[in-house]
């Protein structure tokens, strides 16, 4: 019994991290119909930003909410700036270009960040400082709930709450949803498309920044290629939920986290990475629009 609840908790906490990253994919796809391959590397850069800030301020000497907040702010700021820079320098000049060109650019940006990361940070893994104490809060025969997991859940919920407010209660959110619906109409209606796209990149990247700190806390080894696999899984989660659909991305991510946890626990750990791809190909063949996506039929 404890096994199952424990796996459930682990799966959900893994899933909520995927969700934070998946949202960035889905938001950018929503406004630009672009798979932002570089998103996973923005996330990696966030982890390193908070790593260096933590080292600089010796945050691990006094773990707690203050230190964690500082690391989060560092990572979110770095990611948001990087996201905006990438949009401005690489993607904007190509808006309206053939899809293949944009996709290759995205791959180019991703590789550029990975190789720069290897050059600047070195290819060896670094140990992420433990910014909060990991003590069991609940310890019964049914379930052990540690403070780290609780932190992950609380921060994810907080981030999702703020995002929900942004998307459904602010002018930016309204504009963003309008652009997702139809960019031309939105711009005719006087929405500043460029500004909204920039903010979308900022918000999406900042969420990845939050994710990177949480991953750093949970799996404290960070390295320049850390984004590749997790980015891919988050992307699969976004597709699973129906890319462009934000609620779908969160649910897809939780399903992804849970299924991964259970596959590793009860089947085999070598299947961990094949699972994501198998799942992806399965969805795309069986229901390409994802669980919550809209079917779009081309008008003749």
């Amino acid at each position: 019994m404890q096994d199952i609840t424990q796996h459930l908790i682990n799966g959900l906490s893994l899933g909520s991290i995927y969700a934070l990253i998946a949202l960035g994919y889905t938001m950018v796809y929503g406004v630009l119909q672009l798979i932002n391959f570089a998103h996973s590397d923005i996330y990696m850069m966030g982890a390193f930003a908070s790593y260096y800030v933590s080292r600089w301020f010796h945050l691990e000497d006094n773990p707690g909410i203050a230190s964690l907040s500082l690391a989060l702010i560092a990572s979110m700021t770095a990611c948001a700036l990087l996201g905006v820079a990438i949009e401005r320098l690489a993607y904007r000049p190509l808006r309206g270009a053939p899809k293949l060109n944009i996709l290759i650019t995205a791959i180019g940006v991703s590789l550029f960040l990975e190789f720069s990361g290897q050059l600047i940070f070195g290819a060896d893994p670094k140990v992420f400082p433990s910014l909060i104490e990991d003590v069991p809060l609940i310890d019964t025969e049914f379930v052990v709930l540690k403070s780290l997991e609780v932190t992950v859940f609380v921060i994810t919920l907080l981030a999702l709450g703020i995002l929900h407010y942004l998307v459904y209660k602010t002018k930016f959110g309204k504009s963003m949803r309008a652009i997702s619906h139809n960019m031309t109409t939105a711009s005719i209606l006087g929405i500043n498309v460029n500004k909204v796209i920039v903010i979308t990149f900022m918000v999406g990247s900042a969420l990845a920044g939050v994710g990177s700190v949480l991953v750093g806390l949970k799996y404290p080894k960070i390295e320049p290629l850390m984004g590749v696999m997790i980015g891919l899984k988050a992307f699969v989660a976004a597709v699973l939920g129906g890319i462009g659909n934000m609620t779908g991305a969160v649910i897809g991510a939780l399903l992804m986290g849970l299924s991964e946890e259970f596959v590793v626990a009860y089947l085999s750990s070598t299947l961990r990475d094949a699972l994501a791809f198998g799942l992806l190909i399965g969805i795309l063949i069986w229901k390409p629009s994802g669980l919550f996506g809209k079917n779009s039929i081309e008008k003749v």
Partner: peptide, 16 residues
């Protein structure tokens, strides 16, 4: 590899 990825982006922008 950095030059490779950088030139990839530049080619896509300037010689699509």
């Amino acid at each position: 590899m950095i030059l490779f990825s950088l030139s990839l982006i530049l080619i896509m922008i300037f010689k699509p």
